[in-house]
């Protein structure tokens, strides 16, 4: 069955430089620098990326950072906790906006 997502496309990410090399080079250089060891370890950054991947619901990113966190020695428990952080922020983001709803209710109600 034909689908929009093909797992094999993940390996072709670098091909984006075919249509705009300069910007792609800058992006991949920046990308590499972001994930290098720094004030945060590469392992911590990988767990953050895994959580963000679930927030943006990018199938490529989930594939890539599931592998990457495993390679960096993360446990399944740590990986799931990272996804729960993403879920908590997403859920919390909805719920905290309910204060606006409550404000509006109070504003327009007798």
């Amino acid at each position: 069955m034909e689908t929009y997502y093909d797992p094999a496309d993940l390996k072709k990410f670098g091909n984006i430089s075919e249509y705009q090399k300069e910007l792609a080079d800058k992006f991949f250089s920046y990308y590499g620098a972001v994930f290098a060891e720094g004030a945060l370890t590469a392992r911590e950054k990988s767990l953050i990326a895994l959580a963000v991947a679930h927030t943006v619901q990018c199938a490529y990113c989930i594939d890539a950072y599931t592998n990457d966190t495993l390679e960096k020695g993360c446990t399944e428990e740590q990986m799931m906790e990272a996804v729960h952080v993403a879920a908590a922020i997403r859920g919390g983001s909805s719920l905290v906006h309910s204060v606006q709803m409550m404000n509006k209710v109070k504003q327009v109600s007798m």
């Binding site: 590469a42 990457d68 495993l70 390679e71 960096k72 020695g73």
Partner: peptide, 19 residues
């Protein structure tokens, strides 16, 4: 000796050793 428990490669040796 660490070797991955699955179909993935080992991460950086120094970081794994630390953990």
């Amino acid at each position: 000796v660490y070797n991955p428990a699955g179909a993935f490669m080992p991460g950086p040796q120094a970081s794994l050793e630390q953990q």
